[in-house]
Design a protein around this nucleic acid. Structure first.
Ligand SMILES: [Mn+2]
Ligand SMILES: [Mn+2]
Ligand SMILES: [Zn+2]
Ligand SMILES: [Zn+2]
Lengths: 126, 126
DNA sequence: TATATTATTGCAAATGATTTGCAATATGTC
DNA sequence: GACATATTGCAAATCATTTGCAATAATATA
């Protein structure tokens, strides 16, 4: 009875490195491109799925039908500003206790998480 | 030189009626099902695209890879609570001036819109 | 009302992102 | 190093959404 856990393989290392390289949410295709096709898209998807499950990345959607993933560096929850013109993304952190309390008061849902994204124009594109 | 504008056709009336029937964001497929396949999915997509363009519906994503649309009844901006278990959706309205001001202060983006969705468990599923 | 003009529809086929099946390969254990 | 099992790559499948196009419906105006 040999039991082995999750393996930290070469593909996974590369994908982790890729995610770490970006400071914003990136799609599977972008990771693939960054890694110059070294790792199959399928494996990228599977690895992302895994990383999501073990909670080291976060999934976001900006509305263009592609899921994006971002490393939860230092575990700091944050949101994004997305430029509708050039696609540039800025991270944004803020205190949101007020907001959350407000919602918890208004509803009887048990809230586990939330996503908040802003869309507009970056300084360059204004 | 005859020029004609946007037509309020039978399919469009039906799709509008369907959207009006739901009080939450629904997918093209859900509309199609509600209308018992009377209207082709393609036309539903095209109509939704149009309605989005003329600003009478709003597009949302709950993270399952399907876009959802909701009539902007009384034009009131709001957000959602989504049950991760049964998929139930609750609308939520709140004052968010503070939040928005905070973001505007922190960033030099010109913000046009934002999306905020909460995920958790509805009363029934807790 | 009939006719002309243009917008819209449905259907089939294309696309694009993500998933699945499976045999070949890489990893960690003993 | 040999074994047991987890992971990979590749091909094919799926699912949501889009596109091309000829047939049909809606409106203007004669
Ligand atoms: Mn971020
Ligand atoms: Mn709503
Ligand atoms: Zn920009
Ligand atoms: Zn529920």
């Amino acid at each position: 009875m040999t039991k082995i856990g999750i393996r930290y393989t070469k593909p996974r290392k590369l994908i982790f490195k890729a995610l770490n390289h970006f400071s914003k949410p990136v799609s599977a295709a972008e990771i693939n491109f960054y890694l110059k096709n070294k790792i199959d898209l399928t494996s990228i998807y599977r690895t992302l799925e895994l990383m999501k499950k073990i909670n080291i990345i976060e999934e976001t959607e900006f509305g263009d039908g592609k899921k994006r993933y971002e490393l939860m560096k230092n575990n700091k929850h944050h949101h994004h500003l997305v430029c509708e013109n050039c696609g540039d993304v800025e991270n944004i952190e803020m205190k949101e206790d007020n907001l959350l309390d407000k919602v918890k008061n208004k509803s009887s849902f048990l809230i586990k998480e939330h996503k908040l994204e802003f869309f507009g124009l970056c300084p360059n594109c204004q």
